[in-house]
Simulated scan of single mutants.
Amino acid sequence: MARTRQPAAPKLPRSPKKAIEQLSRPGPHSVLRGELGLVGLPGVVYAPSEGLGLPAVAFGHDWLQGPDRYLPLLRHLASWGIVAAAPASFRGPVPSHARFSADLRSTLEVCVGVRLGDGAISVDKRRLALAGHGMGGGCAVLAAADRQAAGEPVAAVVTLAASETRPSAIEAAPLITAPSLHLAAGKDQVSPLVGNAEPVAAGWGGPVVLRSLPKANHLGFLSGRAWIDSLLAGKPHSGTARLTRALVTGFLLQTLFGDSDLDELVSGELKRTELLLTR
């Protein structure tokens, strides 16, 4: 793994506004990067430079995208103490949602079963989360439902502009009891709120927060540029990506670390967002 340096961060303030500002910046941990391909699954993994019993999240990419479009988010989560891994499979035009969701489950198994960072990093199997953008968000829901059906723990689920899948993420949502955060883009013409994130959140079987970013488009969560951007409505937006990093990090710190100081940030009213559902 190659080491990247991250500045130290002070204790998080209780004020949601100040917490968002803090969480939008890198956390206190130095970060290591590795390749999932070393254990037979293409993709990347970012981890704090050390720590035992850490939480982990498997992140699913959108249709025709790949993990490289989400590296700032993955690196950011690792800087806050969360192992973040993203498989690079099923990047073609006709992906199998069921098989990609299986790869997300396998990614979590790799995080738990393989000592990272020359053995200095381990993951707690009780603190595992699933997340994704667009197609990857829908597949994260499928993976969470499959894990729960198999009696495997799921501590949290996060979706960004979730897309419907086959089998259906909307139909799988009521089966999941883990806490969830769903972020929707107000100007999304690819995975509009109505028909995607909204029914997933409305039918969720556990605690749920649905929040819209009114000025965001479907590609606003991404970083960098790719040929597919010209075929889809919207473009990457640094402000959307930065706000998303803060919201996702805050939610995962609350659910995976039990940080109750972040309760208001997770489920309260926040500037530049619209809280649509909390239960």
Rank of each mutant, 00 (worst) to 15 (best):
A2H: 05
A2W: 02
A2D: 09
R3W: 12
R3E: 15
R5V: 15
Q6D: 07
P7S: 01
P7T: 00
A8R: 14
L12Q: 11
P13R: 03
E21L: 10
E21Q: 11
S24P: 04
P26V: 00
H29N: 15
V31P: 12
L32K: 08
E35A: 01
L38Y: 04
G40V: 00
L41D: 02
L41H: 07
V44L: 12
Y46S: 00
E50K: 06
L54A: 07
L54R: 10
A56V: 12
V57E: 04
G60P: 08
G60R: 07
D62V: 04
W63V: 01
L64K: 11
L64A: 07
Q65D: 15
D68Q: 15
R69K: 13
Y70Q: 12
L73K: 05
L74C: 08
L77P: 02
A78E: 05
A78Y: 06
A78L: 05
V83W: 00
A84F: 05
A84Y: 03
A88F: 00
R91K: 14
R91S: 14
P93V: 13
S96Y: 07
S96V: 05
H97K: 05
H97S: 12
A98R: 15
R99G: 10
R105I: 10
V110L: 10
C111W: 00
V112P: 00
L116M: 10
G119E: 01
A120Y: 04
I121Y: 05
I121T: 02
S122Y: 04
R127Y: 01
L128F: 01
L130R: 06
L130M: 10
H133C: 09
M135A: 03
G137C: 06
G138C: 03
D146T: 14
Q148I: 12
G151T: 04
P153S: 01
P153Y: 10
A155R: 11
V157P: 03
T159A: 07
A162H: 09
A162L: 06
I170G: 07
E171V: 11
A173C: 01
T177R: 15
T177M: 10
A178L: 11
A178M: 13
A178T: 08
A184T: 07
A184F: 02
G186V: 00
K187L: 15
S191W: 07
L193F: 13
G195A: 11
N196C: 10
P199H: 03
A202I: 08
G205S: 07
G205V: 05
G206T: 02
G206S: 04
P207Y: 06
H218S: 06
G220N: 11
G224H: 15
I228Q: 12
I228G: 04
L232Y: 09
P236W: 07
H237D: 14
H237W: 15
S238H: 13
A241E: 08
F251K: 02
F251A: 03
D259I: 07
L262A: 03
D263M: 13
T273R: 12
T278I: 14
